[in-house]
């Protein structure tokens, strides 16, 4: 029994790991493609995808109730406040 469970744990982990590697190769390759201002958003989007993958599988958020997911995601909203209002000042300076 424990052998099967161990294999299940390893399989799910390796699958996610493979996904992360693919994303890493993608972001590395795309970095050399000249896209002007698009380079940064694409790089950050891929990084966000990797982070989401780690959070859902490795940090096991997909099997948790709403309360824990809210606790996990709450700080992103406050980071949003910080960036949004600081750039409201930065971008509208004379």
């Amino acid at each position: 029994m424990s052998g099967g469970e161990a294999r299940a744990i390893l399989r799910r982990g390796l699958l996610t790991w493979a996904g992360l590697l693919l994303l890493l190769l993608a972001t590395l390759a795309l970095a050399y493609v000249p896209m002007g201002w698009l380079n940064l958003p694409v790089g950050l989007a891929i990084a966000a995808a990797k982070a989401l993958l780690v959070a859902l599988v490795f940090m096991d958020l997909r099997r948790r109730d709403l309360l824990l997911r809210l606790a996990a995601g709450a700080s992103l909203l406050w980071i949003g406040f910080l960036f949004l209002l600081t750039f409201a000042d930065l971008l509208s300076r004379p």
Partner: peptide, 17 residues
């Protein structure tokens, strides 16, 4: 968390902000 800029009205912060 949304009001901290009222400490910086004269600090050179933009009028819009």
């Amino acid at each position: 968390f949304l009001v901290w800029g009222h400490h910086m009205f004269v600090s050179g912060q933009s009028l819009y902000a």
